[in-house]
């Protein structure tokens, strides 16, 4: 249990650092650390597959792309655009609304007894796969179609226009 508190503390700390650091590259690095703590959370919950997938997809691929883009943009303090006060106020209002919504949601939530399962193997690959391909087959396939369409869109955008290219 104490391990959980340590990791939870670290994830909150790192996620706060993501917001508070000025340098966007540092932000991304702290975000990576945050995702790493999430991986540890999954392992603590014995959800090995989720842990590893989180590790590969978020830390290994998506964050690399984030870092990739940020490194190319050459953002440092000198080039950072001055933010107007209007933007700041809008930001505060939006953040505050989100906070209020979250608090309301948490207050409205009924606290039920923590559901415990005796099956510790539930998070393993085999069980997860069986559930995913029987009970949740339709959502799974729909999400895969969503990803496919996104991919097709990206390819279309990246494709060279033959007419303008050869001119």
């Amino acid at each position: 249990m104490s391990l959980f508190y340590l990791v939870a503390f670290l994830s909150i700390l790192f996620s706060l650092l993501v917001i508070f650091t000025k340098n966007p590259v540092y932000s991304v690095l702290y975000l990576i650390a945050t995702f790493f703590t999430f991986t540890i959370h999954y392992i603590l919950l014995n959800a090995q597959f989720l842990a590893v997938v989180n590790f590969i997809v978020y830390m290994g691929a998506i964050m690399v792309l984030f870092l990739f883009v940020l490194m190319l943009m050459n953002l440092n303090k000198e080039t950072e655009p001055m933010k107007s006060n209007v933007l700041k106020i809008v930001g505060v209002i939006a953040g505050g609304t989100l906070l209020v919504t979250l608090i309301g949601a948490i207050k409205a939530m009924q606290t039920t007894a923590v559901s415990t399962t005796t099956n510790t193997q539930i998070g393993l690959v085999g069980n997860l796969g069986k559930v995913l391909f029987s009970e949740f087959l339709l959502p799974f396939e729909i999400s895969s179609i969503l990803l496919l369409s996104a991919m097709v869109g990206a390819v279309l955008l990246a494709k060279k226009d033959k007419r303008t290219q050869n001119g």
Partner: peptide, 21 residues
């Protein structure tokens, strides 16, 4: 661990951070 291959895969994908940073 019973996701050994995925673990290796994750570690390999982390390897690029050293180079990038």
């Amino acid at each position: 661990i019973n996701v050994g291959i995925l673990y290796i895969f994750g570690v390999v994908s982390l390897g690029v951070y050293g180079i990038m940073i």
